[in-house]
Amino acid sequence: MLTVLLLSSSAKALTAASVYAALLLGATTASGDTGADERKQTTQRPRSTPAQAKPLAAPNSTAKVVRLTNDSLAGQPFGSEPTVTELLHAGGTVVTRKPFHNLHEAGQVDTILLLRHRGNLFEFYRAPEKDLLRDASITNFETAYGQRLRARMTAAHRPAAGTTERVRIGDTERANYVSVTYNSGRLSAVHVEPYVD
């Protein structure tokens, strides 16, 4: 049974490869290539299919990438971290609430809270005893926490004027990360990825 299945799969692959080669030959002949070119193409390996193709590079793939290790900055990028209560009192809005079964306490259901404040997004893990920041994307630095973040980033790294850089700041344990994007030498976005167990 297994042999029949393998032979069937091999036959399908061979048929697909033959059809692909025939299409390549037809396209080559139609474009006016010589027979020598056709023989050369049939001996070459066929191109990968779109499913196997590598993903396209990001638009700023030419940006310089800098990697830093800084335990203090990666562990506490805001200095004093904004809380759910502070963000809500300052005009933040809850985008979504999702229940999440606590992995350490049987029967306890906690909440994943996505909160937006002045264009910035925060994700918190809310348990009865505490709120833990899981993720933050900051693009508006006019807030108090944004200004603290900018000051700490400026102290850690100064890109050259007019350059586009991406800075990845991690701690020595590789648990907490902060990704920073500079456009034309100016801070434009910060993505905070703290470790949450």
Rank of each mutant, 00 (worst) to 15 (best):
L2A: 14
T3H: 11
V4P: 00
L5A: 15
S9G: 10
A13G: 01
A13V: 08
A16F: 09
A21W: 04
A22C: 07
L23Q: 08
L23H: 10
L23A: 14
L24R: 12
L24I: 09
L25V: 13
A27S: 13
A30S: 12
S31M: 12
S31H: 09
D33C: 12
T34A: 14
T34I: 09
G35E: 10
E38K: 09
R39C: 10
R39A: 13
Q41H: 08
Q41D: 12
T43L: 14
Q44V: 07
Q44S: 11
R45M: 14
R47A: 15
P50H: 10
P50V: 08
A51Y: 13
Q52F: 14
Q52W: 13
A53D: 09
P55M: 08
A57M: 08
A57K: 10
A58I: 04
A63F: 06
V65W: 05
R67Y: 07
R67H: 11
L68I: 03
T69V: 09
D71T: 13
S72N: 11
S72D: 14
A74N: 00
G75Y: 02
Q76N: 12
E81W: 00
V84W: 03
V84S: 01
T85M: 10
A90R: 12
A90W: 05
T93I: 09
T93H: 06
T93W: 04
V95W: 09
T96W: 06
R97L: 14
R97Q: 09
R97W: 08
N102I: 12
N102M: 09
E105V: 15
E105M: 11
A106Q: 10
G107Y: 04
V109H: 03
D110G: 01
T111H: 03
T111Y: 04
G119R: 03
N120E: 02
E123H: 01
F124E: 01
F124W: 01
F124I: 05
P128L: 11
K130M: 05
D131E: 13
L132C: 05
R134H: 08
D135A: 06
A136L: 04
S137R: 09
I138P: 00
F141P: 02
F141T: 01
T143G: 07
Y145C: 02
Q147L: 15
Q147A: 15
L149N: 01
L149V: 01
A151S: 11
M153D: 01
M153V: 15
A155E: 11
A156V: 07
H157D: 05
A161H: 05
G162E: 07
T163Y: 01
T164Y: 03
T164D: 05
E165Q: 11
E173F: 04
E173V: 05
R174Q: 12
Y177N: 04
Y177H: 06
Y177R: 10
S179W: 05
V180C: 02
T181Y: 06
N183A: 13
L187E: 00
V190C: 02
V192H: 04
E193A: 06
P194R: 00
P194D: 00
P194L: 03
Y195P: 03
D197T: 06
D197W: 11
